[in-house]
Nucleic acid binder design. Structure first.
Lengths: 207, 207
DNA sequence: TTCCCTTTTGACCAATCTGGTCAATTGTAT
DNA sequence: ATACAATTGACCAGATTGGTCAAAAGGGAA
């Protein structure tokens, strides 16, 4: 099914993919319209159903595909050798911000898929999602250098705190850059500010 | 318009309100169906348009009404005399959790309204929202006792950290209680755990 | 040109749904 | 019986739904 799709003009592929994830993100599975998708992709109705045999087929393909796309980009750009957990978490958060900036439509789509409640696709989605989380998230907290922590601090809670702080921080960054016109922003200032928070937390929890 | 509505059976009022916010939260303004609302409220089409002269009228009324409801409940149960910022933030977060637990439908509706992009209502919503945020949020950070902070700590950033940590914490609590069957939960354990985090942060930032 | 195969089209389907109206019915209090 | 408010639901005209399929268009080889 999908293999045939990838032989298309790359530009036509993109038009279809973008139109589809936009529509699904906007309206959710049930309410999304295949008519709307073909119209905004500039292709005929028949063609869409030629490549994807049903609406469900299309939706599940999109989900699988873009999870894969983000995963690939994420793991190719992240250095895993970073020994300090705090910095590791920071890198992940900043990367997430950069990727949300770069591919907002994909994030919107995957976020809406995460919230999707239509019984027609819910089961398959949950399955994909769990597989992803289990494989990716765990390794953030792997191999933490315990010797750096001051005696008496609860290491797990400390790491949790750092995680929440940087999550809050990157959420704030996203909201700010959304308000201002975005464009060229390379997050240099934000990296620096994130480091200030890291330093504060290190001073609190490290020896 | 709305004044007439409040003369109805209270039970009928509730049926209408619940049906409406559920539908709007589920599908967004454009895609929400007035037919669906009257069906699930068990009233006739004509009646809905008798009390609310249009779909837009209904939507904006619901928004205004439930913002008011939550605001009232929030400010009536919160003690403002709490002198410690950290505890103040904690109280607000825990209260938010409790209210989300108590009125999940209202939160869903207001959350979806916050994300609403339909041009027909966006402008009015933004206006309401801004008014709310400006009046409520500011006083969280009012009158902070600076003398408690250790020298050398950046007070604003410290408060920000506490805010993010407790936000992350309460989000986690919500997700957990959503997975488990909810029911009777009074958040006693969660209050205690939140206090642990508060203590850690106090030790870091206070004299 | 002719042949053959793949790609692409869009009219068509039957069903459902849209926000909103309004003449008619029902309920209630005098 | 009268008046008035509350309530109904059939009706409107048009749009939209996921999906099909015979036909047209494209393109390379003979």
């Amino acid at each position: 099914m999908a293999s045939r799709f990838f032989n298309l003009d790359e530009e036509k592929q993109l038009r279809i993919l973008n139109a589809a994830i936009y529509e699904f993100a906007q309206k959710g599975y049930d309410q999304a319209s295949t008519n709307e998708i073909v119209k905004s992709a500039g292709i005929s109705k028949g063609l869409l159903f030629h490549y994807f045999k049903s609406k469900k087929d299309l939706y599940l393909f999109l989900h699988q595909h873009f999870v894969e796309v983000l995963k690939t980009e994420f793991f190719s750009e992240l250095q895993f050798d970073e020994p300090d957990v705090f910095v590791r978490i920071k890198n992940i958060m900043m990367m997430k911000s950069q990727m949300m900036k770069k591919h907002p439509e994909i994030f919107n789509f995957l976020m809406s898929a995460y919230m999707e409640s239509s019984s027609e696709v819910k089961h398959e989605l949950d399955h994909n999602h769990h597989a992803l989380m289990h494989s990716s998230y765990a390794k953030i907290f792997e191999d933490i250098d315990q010797s750096k922590f001051r005696e008496g601090v609860d290491m797990n809670r400390a790491v949790q705190i750092v995680f929440w702080v940087l999550e809050g921080f990157s959420k704030q960054v996203m909201e700010k850059t959304e308000l201002l016109g975005q464009s060229d922003n390379d997050f240099t200032d934000e990296f620096a500010e994130a480091d200030v928070y890291i330093e504060i937390l290190k001073k609190s929890f490290y020896k």
